[in-house]
Simulated assay, not measured.
Amino acid sequence: MSSVDVDRTVVWNMLSEPRMAPYLAEAGGDRDLALDLYAWSARMSSAAFLTVGHLEVLLRNALDRCLREHFREDDCGIPWFLLQVPGGDYVEQAVSAVRHRLRALRQETRHQIVAGLSFGFWTGLLGPKYEQLWRECLRHAFPHSNGTRKQVVVAAERVRKFRNRLAHHDSTINVDIPFEIRKLLELASYIDGDAARWLEQCSPAMAVYAERPVTAEDTVVVPAKHAWPLYEEVRAYVCQSGRAFRPVQRVAFYSGREIKQDVPAVVHRRDGVEWTPESASRLRGSDDRFDRKIAAVIEASAGAWRHGRYQVFLLTKPGDQAHRQLSAPLPHSGSGRGSAFVQKQRYVSLHALETARSTGDL
Rank of each mutant, 00 (worst) to 15 (best):
L24T: 08
F49Y: 14
L35D: 05
D288A: 03
F162M: 02
L67Y: 07
D194W: 05
E73I: 06
A97G: 07
M44S: 10
Q112D: 09
S281I: 09
G28C: 07
I177C: 04
G120C: 00
R243V: 10
R43E: 10
R284T: 11
A328Y: 09
H307F: 09
E274K: 15
R243F: 11
H268K: 11
T109L: 08
W80Y: 01
R149F: 07
E278A: 14
T219N: 00
A94R: 07
A352Y: 05
Q93S: 12
S2E: 11
Y38A: 06
Y90S: 13
R43L: 07
L315F: 06
N164M: 02
W12C: 09
R163L: 02
L102G: 00
Y310Q: 06
H351G: 07
R246G: 05
V342L: 00
L63R: 08
R149N: 05
Q84W: 06
L33Q: 13
A227D: 00
E274V: 12
L37A: 07
P79A: 01
E258R: 12
D287T: 09
G147V: 01
A236H: 12
D30A: 14
A39E: 15
R250I: 00
I191T: 14
W228Q: 00
E354D: 13
L230I: 05
N146A: 14
L283Q: 06
V214C: 02
T51W: 10
E180R: 09
A97M: 15
H140T: 09
G147A: 01
I259N: 04
F162R: 01
D291V: 00
Q325A: 12
H168E: 02
V98C: 03
T215K: 12
G120K: 06
F71R: 12
D75Y: 15
V266L: 11
K129M: 13
A207Q: 15
R163P: 01
W134S: 02
R292G: 09
L35I: 14
V221K: 00
I181A: 12
G360L: 11
L185R: 08
G308N: 11
R212P: 07
P331T: 00
V91N: 15
A25V: 15
A42Q: 14
T148K: 05
H323N: 09
S41K: 01
H100M: 13
E69G: 13
T316H: 04
E26G: 10
A21N: 06
R197K: 14
H168C: 06
L55R: 08
V312S: 03
K260F: 00
S333F: 03
V52M: 09
P213N: 02
H140A: 10
F179T: 08
L350T: 09
S281L: 08
D287V: 14
D176Y: 12
E258D: 05
E299S: 13
W305H: 10
F179D: 08
C66N: 14
G87M: 07
A207Y: 13
F245V: 01
P22W: 03
T355I: 10
W12L: 15
H323C: 05
V91G: 13
W40M: 01
A322R: 14
A244H: 15
I78Q: 08
A94D: 10
A302C: 15
A300K: 01
Q151V: 12
V98Y: 04
G120W: 15
S96K: 15
D7M: 02
S41E: 03
S327D: 13
L166Q: 05
S327R: 14
I191S: 06
S281C: 13
A295N: 05
R149T: 08
D170M: 13
D7P: 06
A188H: 03
